[in-house]
Write a protein that binds this DNA or RNA. Sequence first.
DNA 1: GTCTATAATAGGATAGAC
DNA 2: GTCTATCCTATTATAGAC
Lengths: 189, 189
Amino acid sequence: MPAAILSREEILARLADTFRQRGYDGASLADIAKATGLGKSSLYHYFPGGKEEMATGVLAALSEQLEAGLFGPLAGPGVPARKLGRMLDTLDGFYNGGRNACLLERLAASADRSPFQRPLHAMFERWIGAMAALCREAGIPAATARARAEDAVVRIEGALVLSAGTGDHRPFGRALTAIRRSLLAPPAP
Amino acid sequence: MPAAILSREEILARLADTFRQRGYDGASLADIAKATGLGKSSLYHYFPGGKEEMATGVLAALSEQLEAGLFGPLAGPGVPARKLGRMLDTLDGFYNGGRNACLLERLAASADRSPFQRPLHAMFERWIGAMAALCREAGIPAATARARAEDAVVRIEGALVLSAGTGDHRPFGRALTAIRRSLLAPPAP
DNA sequence: GTCTATAATAGGATAGAC
DNA sequence: GTCTATCCTATTATAGAC
C-alpha cells in the first residue's frame, strides 16, 4: 500500500526532527527523504528552494509553535511563578529531559548560517523578551529582568551542549531547577 | 616558491580553526586543504584515518593545550580569585570575546558524534573538575563546588551558542562577568 | 612529504512520466 | 503530488610519480 500522505505540518515536524538530530550540514536529502517517506521530487515540490528552504520553513513553523505553546502563555493570565513552572515543564518535555538537541543551536552551528541568522536572532530575542516580561510582571526591575532572562536562555542552551557532549543529560535537569529557583527571586538589595 | 612546510602542531592548529568555524560535517577536505595549504595526499599522509582522525587528533592536541594553559595553572600557586581571573581572561581571548565558536560544541553537534563522545566527555569533565577544585581551594563545600563549576561551563557554552545565534557577542562577556562574580563567592548560609 | 591525476561514491537538484 | 531516472558537481579517498 502507498505511504500515508503527510500534511505540511507533519512534513515540517519530521524535517525539524532530522535537522535537530543531524544538524543542517549533516542532514542529507537522502536522510530527509527517509524521515519523511517522500521522494526527493516531492520534497522539491513543497520546498522549491531545496534544503535551505526546508530549514527556513522549519524555523518559521517552530516560531509559530513556540509563540502558541511557550511565549504566548507567559503573557497570559496566571501567577508568574506558575507560568514559569509551566514553561519549564514544557521545555523539559520538548528537549526530552536534555536528550534532544536544540534546533536553534544546530542551525546556528551550520557552516553557512547566514540564511538562518535573522530568524534565529528574532527567536532568541523573542524568547528572552518573553521571560524578561514575566520577570517584570513579578516586580523585578527591567534591567535585572533582562539579564536574568538572557541568563536563563544561556543556561538552557549550555546545558544542552554539555549534555550532548558528555552523554549525561542530568546537567539539563539541574539547569532547569536553577532557573526555576532564581529567575523570579526578589533581587538582592 | 614552495609553500612553507608546517609543523604538525601548526597543521593541527589550522585543522582546529577549520572545524571550529565550519563544524565537522560542514568542513570538507577541500576546506581543510585550503586552510592548511596542503594537498589531500599530504593530509592523508599525516592522518591515514581521514577526516575523522583529523578531528580526533585536533581534540587530543587541544586537550594537551588546555591542560597546560588552562587547567594546570588553576591547580598551581596563587590566590584562587586571581587564578580564576586569569583563566577567564584566557578564555575571553581564546573565544575572541564570544566571536569564536567552541570546538567541543561543534564536534558534539556532528551528525555522528560517536567517535568524539569519549574525548569530549573527558574534556568537559576535566574542565568542570578543575574549576570545582578551585572552588574547594577557596573553601566552598564539595557539592556546591561541583555544581558551580558545572554551571560555569554551562554558561560559557550557552553564551557562545546565543552569541552565534544572534550575531551579538555581548552575552559572552556578561556570562564571564557573572562567573567572575559568583563562582568563588561565599555560599549562602 | 608533496604533488597531479583519478577513482568511486554521495550530494543536491531537475526532467518528465503518471 | 509522487515516482523513477538522471544530471552534474562535490566529496572522500587512493595511486603513483617525483
